[in-house]
Each structure stands twice: as structure tokens, then as C-alpha cells.
Design a binder for these strands. Sequence first.
DNA 1: CGACTTTGACCTGCGC
DNA 2: GCGCAGGTCAAAGTCG
Length: 236
Amino acid sequence: MSEIVINNLFEEHNPQQMGFIPFPTNLTFPSLGCNNQSLKAFTSIASSLTSEISSDSTSQTLLTTTTPQKSKEYLTPSVQAATTQFISLHRSTINPWAILGGGVGDHYFNNNDKRSGVVHDNYHLGVCSSMKMKKMKGRKKVREPRFCFKTLSADVDVLDDGYKWRKYGQKVVKNTQHPRSYYRCTQENCRVKKRVERLEEDPRMVITTYEGRHVHTPSNDLEESQNNSQFESFLW
DNA sequence: CGACTTTGACCTGCGC
DNA sequence: GCGCAGGTCAAAGTCG
């Protein structure tokens, strides 16, 4: 069992076009050590995060990482003792990049060429970064909100996030050695998808991109859901 | 035997 | 219009 480290959290990853695009705020996502339980909780939360982004028009949830020293007040002593680092969830004012459009004036950073800049056009990040949906004849195709994070794992590609996924495709992306896998939530009427690929520059890094929102709760067994709810309860 | 994975074919949007 | 690339489909294969 290799160690899995949630390293960074991004709204979208697109190696070809924009590289990693951090949330346009001061929020940063430092390295985070996780045990299996908190990892599952984290990925579960991450998986459902897009629902917050897409459905809440007045505020949105952002995942951040922090250190126990900074946030001791939020934890019981036992939890503090059990965690060296932990994840917290914050509600914040709306992130214009996460919703349709906005972001004008926001800063971006291109991981490929190390350039940064300011967004001048008013478009959805997912559309912008993929550069594929920017022109839709007649009707504007609304792409489900996307959400992406990096994990460090040598031998685990697909994290257990509490949801059941079925693989429906695999594709070798141009100029990369590692194929990209496509998964769909197996729950009926749930259209959430996720993509899993390894970072070309560092194959130990796994990029997981969620698209859409779950219309159901995770299909964990009882014990796991209790663990998750415990985890989430101290986050919230 | 059902659920899941694999993989080549097909579809669609984009750039030239 | 054409070719390329990413994304999806679906038949065949695999596994428990």
C-alpha cells in the first residue's frame, strides 16, 4: 500500500492549454498527508463539491488544507492528536471562475510555460481551459462544472471516494505516455463522470477530474459512512 | 450470469 | 473542407 498524498486542488487541469489553474484567491493547497479514512472522506467531499459550485448562487464551498497549529480551535484534542495535517472546508464568497463566466480581471497561472496573467474574457473556466466549447453553433452547450485535484500515488490510480464508478473508456492523450481513463457513476440517473490520468512530468502524480454533481449519497457501507460523517462533522 | 473492463470504431469540435 | 484530438459508444472479453 503506497502512501497517497493529496497535493493540490484545482478547478480544472488541462496540460495542453492552461496547465494547472489555481482558484483565483489567496487559498493555497499545501501537501497533505492522509490516512485511508480521511482520504476517502476527502475524495468523497471532493466528488460532491461540484454540486456546491453549481447549485449555490450566493456562496460556494472551497476545499483548503491547513495545519493543526493554525486551526486548533476547530478540533477536539483527540482529533488533533490523530492528525498531523487535515483538510478543512470553507464557505466563501462566490468564485467567479467556478460559475459560468466571470473571472474578468482574475489572475491565472500557466504551469506549462510558467506564465501568469489576467483573464480578459468572460467565460467559464471549464470552457476556457478546454478551448473546445467556446463556440457552439446556435445553442450554448452548458458543460457540467469540473473539479480536479492531484494525488501522489505510485500504484493507485482510482481513489475510493465512496461512489461506485464504471469505466467507459480509455484514451492515450497526445504526447503523453500514460492513458487517460474515463469513469461514469454507476448510479442510475447520476451523470457524474471522472477522468483519471497520470501527470506526464511526474508519473507518481495522479490527476482526478470530476464533472457534474451526484444526485445521491455515496454508496459506502455503514461503517464507512459513519467514518465519513464523523470526518465531515468536524470539518463543518 | 451479471457486472465490469478493454479497446477499436465512431462522433464532434476546433484549428488550419 | 479536412485532419486531428478528445470524448463516447458498444461489442467482446474477463472475472467473481
